[in-house]
Computed example of a mutant assay.
Amino acid sequence: MSNHNKINYIEFQVSNIAKTKAFFEQVFGWSFTDYGEEYCAINDAGIDAGFYISDNQMRAESGSALIVLYSEDLATTQTRIEQAGGEISKPIFSFPGGRRFHFLDVNGNEFAVWSE
C-alpha cells in the first residue's frame, strides 16, 4: 500500500519534554528518541509522531483535533492517567460504538481514550 497522500506524522506541542515523556511512558508504555532538548519522536504509539516545545495547548474546544487512543480496559487506563498526574476532564461516557473519557496530560493537552 502506498503512503502517498496519507497522514504520515503528527506533532504535539508540549511545555515540558521530560515531564511529557515520563507521563506517556508510565501510562501507555511509549518510548522516545530525543532530537535535541526541544523535540523527541514518539515510539510504540501506533502512529509516527513527536513532541515539540510550545506554550500552546491542544483542546478540542479551541479548535484542535482530538487525538483518541484505544484501551482494552478504560477504568485501568483512567487510574493510570490520574496516578501519573493527568486530569480526567470528561468521565467515562457511552457513545455509538463504545465508551470513552477525555483527559488532560501534564501539559494541559486534551486527549481521549475509548473502548468497545
Rank of each mutant, 00 (worst) to 15 (best):
M1E: 15
N3E: 13
H4T: 15
K6G: 12
K6F: 14
I10W: 07
F12Q: 05
V14L: 03
N16L: 07
A18C: 15
A18E: 11
K19Y: 02
K21E: 03
F24G: 01
E25K: 14
V27D: 02
F28I: 08
S31A: 12
T33D: 12
Y35K: 03
E38Y: 08
Y39T: 03
Y39S: 03
N43F: 05
N43V: 05
D44T: 09
I47Q: 10
G50T: 00
F51P: 01
F51T: 00
I53N: 05
D55I: 14
D55K: 15
Q57F: 13
M58R: 11
S62A: 13
L66E: 10
L66N: 07
V68N: 11
Y70T: 13
S71D: 00
E72G: 13
E72I: 10
T76N: 06
T77D: 10
T79D: 12
Q83H: 14
Q83A: 15
G86E: 10
I88W: 09
K90T: 12
P91S: 02
I92S: 01
S94M: 15
S94F: 14
S94D: 15
F95K: 08
F95W: 08
G97E: 06
G98T: 04
F101L: 02
L104E: 08
G108S: 02
N109P: 03
E110H: 04
A112Y: 00
W114S: 14
S115V: 02
